[in-house]
Amino acid sequence: MIHTEKLTKTFQVKKETVEAVKGVDIDVAPGELVAFLGPNGAGKSTTLRMLTTLLRPTSGSATVAGVDVAADPAGVRARIGYIGQGNGGGHSFRVIDELVMQGRFYGMNTSDATARAQELLHSLDLADLAKRTVIKLSGGQRRRMDVALGLMHSPRLLFLDEPSTGMDPQNRANLWDHIMRLRQEHGTTIVLTTHYMDEADSMSERVIVIDHGRIIADDTAARLKANLAGDLLAVEVAAESAPGVRGLLGRAAAGGEVQENRLDGVVTFRLRLPEGARIAPSLLKDMNDAGAPAQSIELKPPTLDDVFLELTGRNLREGANQ
């Protein structure tokens, strides 16, 4: 559905050159649900804009829905849907009019467009707002309207740039219901960007991690976590047992860092443990055998945040441009 080769975009700002995207290779098969995950300024939107023909690549090539973006941008546009990072509705228009107009842009006739608009307004919980002007909508309502705009013509391939930003948890869940249904019922291929790692984690099968304009990882969330970041294990032992435990944990961490905290005669060790859930039971037994039993343990599965930290040494949340 998507194939890119060394796709690059540089911007000229005053005298400075900003390399927003530095040669990305992406392949997306029909029916896939892919999330681009990366901090602000990573180049997610720029990549999406090249794929949707809104920006011309500086170099490299991209084929989207079987059409080359440089050779036939209009052909690409006719085959895809795009929900940008901003709000799509024109402020002075009524919600229903914008939706119908959007349908008309894609060549639908007015009655089909009206019917489709009603259907979407209903399923996105906007039915009561059909006649309201866009400027009077709340942030979350506008975002849902954006989604409705993008779905008007039922595209086979849909791009969403930070779709859930500005939505409350309930509407986020609603949006995801909608996206999942779209996939199930129509086999729509979906490419979205997000800087919410939990969203990328729970919703998409495949995560492409982007940082500083490069793809630094591309796999299922589960494999990324298993391969790149272990479970986080915290063990509490009595202070007198600490010396024996230290060696045991050091060996288990296999070179990884073991943190140590002492408080009121209790020492807490923290370490990353690849496949921690499998290893922890025998580790506890070894500690018992060594006469240094654990007083409590906590085992946390890794998040994509941990993966990002492992890959870049930075936190996803704070790790913007530098």
């Binding site: 809104l54 209009a74 895809i80 402020h91 954006d146 705009l149």
Partner: peptide, 18 residues
């Protein structure tokens, strides 16, 4: 100018409208 800021211009540009 306003639509450039909000994103409604971008939305329209992404459609097949000539």
């Amino acid at each position: 100018q306003y639509e450039l800021m909000t994103g409604s211009y971008e939305r329209i540009l992404a459609t097949p409208l000539s």
